[in-house]
Design a protein around this nucleic acid. Structure first.
Lengths: 200, 200
DNA sequence: CAAAATTTACCTACCGTTCAGTATAAAATT
DNA sequence: AATTTTATACTGAACGGTAGGTAAATTTTG
């Protein structure tokens, strides 16, 4: 006798594996997670995982791709918007913070990609996208200098790196914490400090 | 026949294991490295490693402790020095950058500790020290505000977090790169940007 | 010689992966 | 319409290999 209350379909199964893997990779990194754990957490057997993803690296790869789409897609749009450079930085910061708050498990996994031990083949794409993000930042700041919004002595490359570093740092702080610390107000405040500096 | 040109002593053996482990952990993280690899790289057999360190976690633990001493010891001294707050920040930044340049393997390992997957018991101590470092930064900035060096509206806690984040980011950049990018001049420049801000 | 340092040989547990198969349902053939 | 074929979704059991770890024997050192 088969219980027809338990309806199964491929989408749910794949999605469950996907989420379980994201959760586990976020917690312990690629090598810290076994296929057995993923299978237990997602409620399917190991061969099912291979049926959908082909290999352990296969899951990881798909996770990276999804993350790239989710995080970076909005940045190019913001770049083209008509608003002061400083506001663009604030909006980007807010977007990024919102993502970390809304999808903590996924964001945590995603953040592990920027660590130094990145031999993984799946990360080539990610690194390229991260560089693109860096260039967008540089462009925004450079535009801000040209329009007189930022001081002429500002170094766009350095400033972009600093902003990227600050983003990364605060998102990690959020992911390590239980409370919500990444608010829109904080995003505003951070850009404000970087804009005005400490001496005024 | 034994070759007496190869003199061995216990200190060298332990040191070799230590350095090999630091190198490997830095490259691939705790779970990405096996005891077999450490033994091969250090030129001793596995049981010798167990003789000196007891377990895989044992090496890791000792690595963390040494790192903490090396990196954070100078900070308390700088805090007590008689110089402008801004100069203190510059000196601390230079010290940190110098460490990353001089001991890249070790620094790389050390940087892996700030990633989100930190279930490891060895990291409790590290986290405490990192918090202490944060408090030192806050104290310096607060002193700078009181003496009128920094603007009265500055938020010391937030500024300290930003500086910590920027440090972390640039050290990682260095460790991922072949060229020397962390110079004393860059340290100066970074603090300058944070001090003056982007708009002047 | 005794103590310290190091190796040989081996253990069990778990790793990622694959094989050979099964229940179900839709599609094609008769 | 009944039967056969094909495709999808999934599983239990097992593979070769490597993981961390250790008891016991051996070599080196003082």
């Amino acid at each position: 006798m088969h219980n027809h209350l338990e309806t199964k379909n491929s989408h749910d199964t794949k999605e469950n594996i996907f989420l379980a893997a994201a959760h586990l990779f976020a917690k312990r990194g690629y090598n810290g997670v076994s296929m057995r754990e993923i299978s237990e957490k997602s409620g399917v057997t190991k061969p099912t995982i291979y049926y959908y993803f082909g290999s352990k690296e296969g899951i990881y790869h798909e996770l990276v791709d999804t993350g790239i789409q989710h995080v970076f897609s909005s940045f190019e749009t913001i770049l083209k918007d008509k608003m002061p450079a400083k506001d663009k930085l604030v909006v980007m910061t807010k977007k990024l913070f919102q993502f970390a708050v809304d999808y903590p498990e996924f964001a945590k996994f995603f953040m592990t990609l920027v660590t130094p031990f990145t031999d993984n083949a799946a990360l080539v794409k990610f690194k390229k996208e991260a560089e693109k993000r860096g260039r967008i930042l540089v462009t925004i700041i450079r535009t801000g200098i040209e329009s007189g919004e930022f001081g002429a002595s500002a170094n766009p490359e350095l400033a972009a790196k600093i902003i990227g570093g600050v983003w990364q740092h605060f998102i990690w702080q959020q992911l390590a914490s239980q409370k919500k610390i990444l608010t829109d107000e904080l995003a505003q405040e951070i850009i404000e400090i970087l804009f005005k500096g400490l001496n005024e």
